[in-house]
Design a protein around this nucleic acid. Structure first.
Length: 117
DNA sequence: GCTGAGCGG
């Protein structure tokens, strides 16, 4: 279950966030969204919890939890879903239907500073 | 370096 956490203090860290949710239940992973380049904390993150009941409890308790002088906003994460919400199955094929993705293949590289030969 | 709605990979 993905949980959306907002109003997060900019000084808060994913580790602390995970610990906060771990107090209410098992936390699979905690992530905080940041900018693409400036690494600036956007102020909101996501927490993944396997147990739904613990999720509700965590949301119920952490929703409005005051920390560092800020109140946390916890709710169910609703990422922009494309439209597929019928089954847990996801297409592994490309747009063309062909996949030539190899394991260990690097999408972009070319840093061959090694002037071989 | 900041800021305060927002849904990330």
């Amino acid at each position: 279950m993905d949980i959306f956490v907002g109003s997060l203090p900019f000084k808060l860290k994913e580790k602390e966030l995970k610990e906060l949710f771990e107090k209410f239940g098992e936390v699979t992973s905690a992530k905080i969204v940041k900018s693409k380049s400036t690494r600036q904390n956007k102020g909101f993150g996501f927490v993944d919890m396997p147990n739904e009941e613990e999720v509700r409890k965590a949301i119920f308790e952490l929703n409005g939890f005051e920390i560092m002088g800020r109140n946390l906003e916890v709710s169910i994460s609703e990422k922009k879903d494309k439209s597929k919400a019928k089954t847990t199955k996801a297409p592994k094929l490309n747009s063309q239907g062909k996949l030539f993705v190899k394991e260990g293949y690097r999408p972009f590289k070319g840093n061959d500073k090694r002037g071989n030969r």
